[in-house]
Amino acid sequence: MSYFSDIINGTKTLITGMRITGKYFFVNLFTRKDVITQQYPDNIDTLKMFDRFRGEITLYHNENNEHKCDACTLCVSACPNGSLEVFGDKKPDPETGKNKRYLVKHIYHLEMCTMCGLCIEACPQDALEWGQDYHHVQYDRSKLTKVLNKPGSKLMSGIKG
């Protein structure tokens, strides 16, 4: 008698489905609690992106304006579309007297970046990380080219150059 049990089972599963979607509908109709739509231009001041949002590449700086980048350029070789440029230089280390690499400029071309995150994976020092800024609109393309290391910043101590 699978004919009748099929009908009963089918009806049961349909009602299960309708209960789930019905819950979505009525909760959102009366409370708008679960609505995930962002009314973008209206809530531009209050909109905050979630932690895992891939907005842009940033260079981590701690409160003493120190970063972890020793200009090894592994991120540059990892980038598939050449949106990173790293300029480093060498100067003698005051403690050991040996020549040590240091970062001069970490240039990021946002207009070429596809947010693939390969540079972040490639970095041996975990110096790069995701930023949550989403509002990248500019009137001029040159404004999309950014220097990631803040002025006057230096290498964090304990990072091997």
Binding site: Y24, N28, L29, D34, V35, I36
Partner: peptide
């Protein structure tokens, strides 16, 4: 409108 609410949209 109804479709929006069903799909957690507006």
């Amino acid at each position: 409108r109804v479709a929006g609410f069903f799909q957690l949209r507006l």
